[in-house]
Design a protein around this nucleic acid. Sequence first.
DNA 1: ATTCTGACGTGGG
DNA 2: CCCCACGCCAGAA
Length: 115
Amino acid sequence: MEDSNNFFSKVYVVVKQIPYGRVTSYGAVAKYLGAARSARMVGWAMNASHSIEDVPAHRVVNKQGLLTGKHHFGGTNLMQQLLESEGVVVIDNQIQNLDMYLWDPWKELGTPQDL
DNA sequence: ATTCTGACGTGGG
DNA sequence: CCCCACGCCAGAA
C-alpha cells in the first residue's frame, strides 16, 4: 500500500493536480510519466486508487472524452453526475467540448521534473 | 509457471 | 469508415 511509490503513486500525484471542472486522458498522464504506451496502467492505477487516496478518477477519461470507466465507479451514471456537477457537459458518457475541459500536465505543471 | 484480461492508444488493412 | 492487431505492465485464475 504505502509501497506504491512507483507508477501508481505518480499517477495519483498527477491526477490529484487536476483542477475542478477539468479532465485529462489516461494517455496524457501516462505519457507525462514517461509511459506513453502504458495508458492501461493508468486506468489500473485508478482502480487501485479507489482504496488508497482521494483521487478524482472521474476527471480521468480516455482520449475520446468517453467515460469508459464509469462502470467502475459503483453507480451507473455516478461518474457522469460528478463531471456535470463540476460544470462539464456529458452526454451519453461522452464529454462535450472536451477540448475546452482538457487539462494538460505540461501546460499546467510544466515538465515532469518533480517526479 | 502460463494465460488472459484490462478504466488505452496508435497504426495498419 | 470499420475492424483487427500490437505494445505496455500488473494482477487474477
